[in-house]
Design a protein around this nucleic acid. Structure first.
Lengths: 241, 241
DNA sequence: CGGCCGCTTGATGAGTGTCAAGCGCCGTGG
DNA sequence: CCACGGCGCTTGACACTCATCAAGCGGCCG
């Protein structure tokens, strides 16, 4: 099967956390070289998925925290009515799985938006290592709390008008790409208009209209899914800091 | 001064966590009697505040997790534009302070809506005890993650129509009062219409109108701030799920 | 008693969702 | 190779929810 062959190759090219290009973006932030070494030994590395496949699904038992290594994914919360809310867009180096910490079951699903690779950190290893490494305990707790902070920020956005939501979304994406060494001026949206709408609480038509509006105002240039930011300050004037 | 006299009395009537009427609602959930004992010794107890005073304010250093013991308070996130968003309404036994875990500074403020008493659990004690008590580590992590879950639930609500938001709010309040041994049929709103609006992302006029609408539909009875739930199932028909 | 605050109620308009039509692109299958 | 169909996107017309503005009422406190 093609998938398993691919996995074998990936396994061969495993990279220890200390050598990972993501560095501090991922969990190692604030840990000593030695601590990272120990952490690294418990990580299941470089598993890959293709577009549309899921890392985990809502309802499954909470087993692990996941670190996205390459590609993008969406963290999705399904409404009972079938309408999905996209809690966040995950870029390389970002972590997922915290929605399972409290209840022991994941509340959301993580779905690959393109081919992705990711690492897996089993929760029992986290618990074990946290006991021995206070710094790891701090990191895990802070990352968990950080998800709450992100949520607050998102809620603040959700009650602003559509143009401000979209401007903030684009600027946030730009900044996050910059932190990861990609261009912050030009990047490809891996979300459809519908998905951007699901993320921002807007209809896809509104997203399309607002993008068009930004383009006519010379703030951005659009070529399909490719976005080029022409006037960052202009966008910032929308976004209430 | 009346306040300090009151505080002396409160100090005298201190209650160890094991004897606290809140029991499992607060942190002790899942801890052994002995663990709670140790925890109890590090807790600063029964401090009181009057309406309008704050337990902590946005921007202050993260020092402690707080447990509300009696009274109600609001967890408030200030927008730069002065408009405030009420992240949550805190009832007795509920915890606050997790908005400071990630960044080391509180993002929100906690303001008393009436006279409140509360306990304080210093963060350095949490860190110290967590290392020795795996169960406490679990509880703290789960509570932190739980705040994220609450946030998700709230965001789901925020994109539903006004009547559904209000119905869900009332039902949630009712349920939480029930868990605390109060009547779930009749309770007093400690929030003004404006504050309910800030919580649900609505104008105060809309809140007032929707309440009126529920009253004419015989779902609730209103006497100022006193709410009586007449038809719980009727309300649930609004609330999705 | 007067003034402020919290609340209700009404009138109006803006911002968006919804519905509908059409276009271009891509993959599929004839 | 081309025709077809589906999907993602754009654009327009319309409806509707809800915010805003405004007025007035009752209660509480100074």
């Amino acid at each position: 099967m093609a998938a398993s062959l691919q996995q074998v190759q990936q396994t061969r090219s495993q990279v220890a956390c200390n050598d990972c290009h993501l560095g501090e973006l991922c969990i190692p932030q604030g840990l000593t070289h030695c601590d990272v070494e120990r952490l690294s030994n418990t990580v299941r590395r470089n598993r890959t998925l293709r577009k549309g496949e899921h890392i985990y699904q809502a309802g499954e038992h909470y087993n692990s925290i996941y670190a996205l290594k390459s590609g993008t994914a969406k963290l999705v919360h399904m409404d009972r009515m079938g309408s999905e809310s996209i809690v966040s867009l995950l870029l390389p180096g970002e972590l997922a799985g915290f929605d399972g910490v409290a209840s022991g079951r994941y509340l959301c699903s993580v779905v690959a938006l393109e081919t992705v690779s990711f690492c897996e950190l089993p929760s029992h290893q986290i618990d074990r290592l946290s006991r021995e490494m206070p710094a790891l305990y701090q990191v895990i707790l802070q990352r968990t709390g950080g998800k709450f902070d992100e949520c607050l920020e998102r809620m603040r956005l959700l009650r602003r008008p559509a143009d401000q939501r979209l401007a903030a979304f684009l600027l946030s994406l730009s900044e996050r790409y910059r932190l990861r060494g990609f261009s912050h001026v030009e990047f490809r949206l891996t979300l459809t208009r519908q998905e951007i709408g699901d993320h921002l609480g807007l209809a896809l038509e509104t997203v399309s209209r607002m993008l068009g509006q930004f383009e006519s105002a010379q703030l951005i240039a659009i070529e399909g899914k490719l976005i080029r930011i022409l006037d960052e300050e202009g966008l910032q004037r929308y976004s209430p800091r």
